[in-house]
């Protein structure tokens, strides 16, 4: 079975799985050393690392990139220039209220479907797609319930595991393992994590928060479990599978790229009320304009303190993160 990698939250893995291919969320090991060959100045290290890994990893047969930001679009083009690996660019419309935006997302998914068929996949029936969506939806819900009781790192890794290995049924073995072997979630000051995606090395952020006496109640980083697709609604209507994907992904996932991006703030306000977080750790990659530009607005409208943490290639992540997390905890003491 061919493996199709993706790194953007707006690529539905169930769409790939329903085509009989193996979806794999690509989480780079790190942001790199900063001494890589090729352009680095001005380039988002995460976008670069993800595109590079997609092209170089021999276990990946094809890569689905998105135009969610200019950095992703251009980093992918640069990495794929001299590669023969199939790369598909899925356009996720930014002007979410413009006429035809939702229809375009659906059309792009259908175009992706044709790409997957050319890759060796099989076009799914509506029922097959709904079944795949239901499995993912159930698995996400189970994971969300479990995540509330286990350390943040374990919850993040379990979510990535789901995105890499699929749900494998309604009660997947990996979830049992998490439930059986998971340590109890440490008590502490409730913190909401918001911002750009984490690398595997970046998970140290979660450790640092818990070591400093915090408790990550919501991990809303771009590849974190809190910004996953919405649960699958009842499917009694005649809507197509792709329309359900549009509703659960395009309409639901809070992200600063939308124009206007008020939904991110509405979602955040509702989530803060629900989770009782006392502080926000805001994560952004250096040169990521979309998240960076939100910082001032976020600080102005947040009812709880916000601490900014910028990550770059070649950083001593643990040391820098430790300092910023400590600053947040002191503000909340």
């Amino acid at each position: 079975m061919k493996t199709v990698a993706y790194s953007c939250p707006f690529v539905p893995p169930e769409w790939i799985a329903a085509h009989g291919l193996r979806p794999r969320l690509l989480v780079p090991a790190s942001l790199g050393t900063g001494a890589e060959s090729g352009p680095t100045a001005g380039l988002c290290a995460f976008a670069r690392a993800a595109a590079q890994a997609a092209v170089e990893d021999g276990a990946i047969d094809a890569y689905v990139a998105t135009s969610l930001c200019d950095q992703r679009r251009r980093a992918t083009e640069l990495a794929a220039r001299h590669s023969k690996k199939p790369v598909f660019m899925l356009h996720v419309p930014a002007a979410c209220r413009a006429p035809g935006a939702e229809a375009m997302y659906i059309a792009e998914l259908q175009r992706l479907g044709r790409f997957l068929v050319r890759l060796g996949g099989k076009e799914p029936s509506r029922d097959e797609l709904i079944l795949a969506m239901r499995r993912y939806s159930v698995a996400r819900a189970s994971l969300a319930a479990t995540s509330a009781t286990i350390p943040a790192r374990q919850a993040a890794e379990a979510y990535w595991n789901l995105c890499e290995n699929g749900p494998a049924g309604d009660a997947p073995p990996w979830l049992w393992a998490v439930q059986r072997e998971g340590k109890p979630k440490p008590p502490g000051v409730p913190i909401l994590l918001l911002g750009g995606p984490l690398t595997r090395e970046g998970l140290v952020v979660l450790d640092c928060i818990e070591q400093a006496g915090g408790c990550v109640v919501v991990n809303a980083t771009e590849n974190g479990p809190a910004t996953a697709a919405a649960p699958l609604p009842p499917v009694h209507t005649k809507a197509s599978g792709a329309q359900f994907l549009m509703r659960t992904y395009y309409r639901h996932i809070p992200h600063p790229f939308s124009r206007p991006n008020d939904w991110l703030y509405e979602w955040l306000a509702a989530t803060l009320t629900k989770c009782h977080a006392r502080g926000i750790l805001f994560i952004r990659h250096v040169w990521c304009d979309l998240w960076h530009a939100e910082l001032a607005r976020l600080k102005a409208c947040s009812p709880v303190p916000v601490v900014d943490l910028d990550l770059a290639a070649g950083d001593d992540t643990a040391a820098r993160v430790g300092g910023r997390v400590q600053a947040l905890m002191e503000m909340l003491a």
Binding site: H91, P256, D289
Partner: peptide, 19 residues
């Protein structure tokens, strides 16, 4: 303002303006 396949800077700055 056009957005989509535009530079992140402009899109982000225009969003800040809108806010």
């Amino acid at each position: 303002c056009s957005v989509g396949a535009t530079c992140d800077d402009f899109s982000a700055i225009a969003q800040r303006l809108s806010a």
